[in-house]
C-alpha cells in the first residue's frame, strides 16, 4: 500500500484545542491519507453528539488576546470563561472558521477512524450513547496497531 497514514492522539477537551485534531484529520483525508484519531482523557469530550458545552478558558492562558489587557488573576472571576467562549465563537463565525461539528462531520464523511479510549471512558463514566455514531472503543494496543505503520503521529 502506498497510502500514507496519519495517527493522532487527542487529549484535550476545550473549544480551541478541539480544532487541531479535526482540522488536520479532515485535511489529511482530503489529501489521500488514511487517518485515525485516538481520543483519551478530556479529548473524549470531542466525541459527544452535542459540542455546545465546550469552553475556552482564559485562566492560565496569558497568550489569549483580550480586548483590554487584564492580569491573569482576574480570570478566576465568574463569567470570564463564558465571556471568552462567546467571544471566540463569534470571532470564528465572523472569520469563516468552520464549527467543530462541521469539521468533525467532514472527518466522519471522509472515513476518519475514531477510537475512544476504553480506560478513560470507564474512568470518567462516559455513556457511549452520548457519542456520535461509528466510534470504536479500544486501548493503547489498538492505537499502536495503526500508529506503528503511520507516517505521521501527533499528540495533541
Amino acid at each position: 500500500m502506498d497510502e500514507k497514514k496519519l495517527a493522532i492522539i487527542a487529549t484535550k477537551g476545550t473549544l480551541d484545542w478541539g480544532y487541531p485534531p479535526f482540522i488536520l484529520a479532515s485535511t489529511a483525508a482530503a489529501l489521500g491519507y488514511s487517518v485515525e484519531i485516538f481520543f483519551t482523557f478530556y479529548g473524549l469530550q470531542l466525541l459527544r453528539k452535542d459540542l455546545s458545552h465546550l469552553r475556552v478558558s482564559p485562566l492560565g492562558n496569558p497568550a489569549m488576546p483580550m480586548p483590554v489587557p487584564m492580569p491573569n488573576l482576574m480570570m478566576v472571576l465568574p463569567g470570564m470563561e463564558g465571556m471568552a467562549t462567546s467571544m471566540m465563537k463569534s470571532k470564528m463565525k465572523a472569520k469563516g472558521v468552520a464549527s467543530l461539528e462541521e469539521l468533525r462531520g467532514l472527518c466522519v464523511e471522509a472515513e476518519v477512524r475514531m477510537i475512544a479510549c476504553q480506560m478513560t471512558v470507564d474512568l470518567f463514566e462516559f455513556d457511549t450513547a452520548d457519542f456520535i455514531d461509528g466510534i470504536e472503543l479500544g486501548g493503547a494496543a489498538t492505537f499502536f496497531e495503526f500508529a506503528g505503520e503511520a507516517d505521521i503521529t501527533l499528540f495533541m
Partner: peptide, 14 residues
Amino acid sequence: RGLNCPLPILRTKK
C-alpha cells in the same frame, strides 16, 4: 469566498 482554512481545500476535494 468567506471560508477559512481548511474549508476551501475540503470543499475542493469534494
